[in-house]
């Protein structure tokens, strides 16, 4: 069986179920680097050059760990997401990811490149190009791809019912059925954690903040848990300024939703940002203004490899406490 390794970083948190099912159906065995730990972080910071954002540094660390753990890999899977619609681009670091890896890891096994550029072709066309790298006939690739797309849809339906992304990803990895959404207990507060999935679900660098917010007595929701209609229409910021970044679109859509009808469904928004993320720094300003206008409690948290647990926890504790006290006042008055 062909063995394919995937670093557990970056878009793994967004597209892994699609990739995994596609590769499974093409008859490959998928292995992942372990969950982020101190050593992986240190390795990534050591290899990745200084100006990179933390998630990319982590990708380097995970690649190193993957190659070290599985020296017998047939392929390394590296995504190259260029554009998912006809407008805007992904961040340049995503566009150049396979090249950056090849330039750094010289003894790497052959790279299976998963390129998606909807400006040029339909996603299915890219899927065929991907399958060809494994020497597969088109009919088999198309069959595998349509099964993967179907599975990815199912995955999103489960998330929209409120299942947390880490739980769903775990079942994908183990090849088990998705967890049951009915087991989720309801709490009096709901905090929305906004951000790229490689920030919000990277438990090592965000110090399991989702879990900690839950322990403080609040429900935690993420982009992935929002209704499908939130993401149906592209958000245009203004006539003068349109969002250029493909991977910021869903963040703007969520912000737009909370600016309108969605405001009643949540009690506060925390935007988790990686230090040195250019697109986030622009979008965060827009989100902040939207939330302020709408009177939704808002806080942004910036993560980097030097983040101290104490400072992060103080902010989260204060944010949750602030909302609790606010609600209490509303009830008593």
């Amino acid at each position: 069986m062909v063995r394919v390794g995937i670093p557990r970083a970056l878009l793994y948190f967004k597209f892994f179920p699609l990739w995994k099912k596609f590769l499974d159906e093409l008859g490959c065995e998928v292995v992942l680097s372990p969950k982020t730990n101190q050593k992986i972080l240190e390795k990534g910071v050591e290899i990745g050059f200084n100006e990179l954002c933390l998630p990319i540094k982590l990708y380097y660390g995970h690649m190193a760990k993957l190659l070290d753990k599985y020296p017998d890999l047939d392929y390394v899977f590296i995504p190259r997401y260029i554009a998912l619609d006809t407008k805007g681009f992904y961040c340049p670091k995503f566009l150049s990811l396979p090249d950056a890896m090849k330039a750094n890891f010289h003894d790497m096994p052959p790279v299976l490149e998963w390129e998606v550029n909807s400006k040029q072709n339909l996603k299915a066309v890219w899927a065929i190009a991907f399958g060809r790298q494994l020497g597969m006939p088109t009919t088999r690739i198309m069959d595998a791809y349509s099964k993967a797309v179907h599975y990815y849809k199912e995955y999103h339906e489960v998330l929209r019912k409120g299942v947390p992304v880490p739980d769903a990803l775990e079942s994908v990895e183990k090849g088990e059925p998705f967890p049951d959404p009915s087991e989720i207990e309801e709490k009096p507060l709901t905090i929305f954690v906004l951000g790229h999935p490689y920030n919000t679900f990277e438990e090592f660098t965000n110090m399991s903040m989702m879990e900690k917010i839950q322990e403080m007595g609040a429900n935690v929701l993420a982009l992935e848990n929002l209704p499908e209609r939130v993401f149906e229409h592209r958000v245009k910021v203004s006539d003068k300024f349109d969002n250029y970044w493909g991977n910021e679109q869903d963040i703007l859509q969520a912000s737009n939703y909370f600016y309108n009808s969605g405001a009643d469904e949540i009690d506060g928004v925390i935007f988790l940002i990686s230090f040195a993320c250019g697109p986030d720094s622009l979008i965060a300003e827009i989100v902040m203004r939207d939330m302020k206008d709408r009177g939704v409690p808002y806080m942004s948290l910036i993560l980097d490899e030097h983040s101290g647990n104490a400072g992060l926890m103080t902010r989260i504790e204060t944010f949750v406490e602030m909302i609790k006290r606010k609600k209490l006042m509303e009830v008593t008055h």
Binding site: Y298, H306, G311, R315, T318, M322, R325, K326, M329
Partner: peptide, 12 residues
């Protein structure tokens, strides 16, 4: 109105 509505703290 006697309720904390926003805050910030210096980071590093």
């Amino acid at each position: 109105d006697g309720i904390v509505v926003d805050f910030a703290m210096n980071s590093v």
